[in-house]
């Protein structure tokens, strides 16, 4: 899995690419723990080709951290395969989900 970081409108955008499963989520977890990721954040899921409960668990964990810090976490450009996992688990009710990154950044 690849993680690309960019900024739009002063908001950090993490673009995830590839597979987010039990094997790859430790990499994402380490990435989130090593650097300072405070402040609002957008996660671009357009290039995520597969996500399972391990990847979902990490996103839920991140959502909880952001919520307790009173910071926004938005998900953008969810494809159908990713959306399905969120729907099955009802996890979509924990996130603000946008179909456009610029809109998520408030541009």
């Amino acid at each position: 899995m690849n993680i690309a970081e960019s900024t739009i409108n002063g908001i950090k955008v993490l673009s995830l690419e590839g597979v987010l499963n039990a094997a790859s989520s430790p990499k994402f977890k380490a990435y989130l723990e090593t650097a300072d990721h405070s402040g609002p954040m957008i996660i671009n899921l357009e290039q995520v080709e597969f996500i399972d409960s391990s990847g979902l668990g990490l996103l839920v964990r991140l959502a909880r951290q952001k919520k307790s810090a009173n910071e926004a976490l938005k998900l953008a450009k969810m494809n159908d395969r990713v959306k399905r996992v969120f729907e099955i688990t009802q996890a979509h009710s924990l996130f603000d989900i946008y179909d456009d990154i610029q809109a998520a950044a408030g541009n």
Partner: peptide, 12 residues
């Protein structure tokens, strides 16, 4: 889900 669980989704 409202308690932001990190695990337990697999069998679900």
């Amino acid at each position: 889900i409202t308690e932001y669980p990190e695990g337990g989704f697999g069998l679900l």
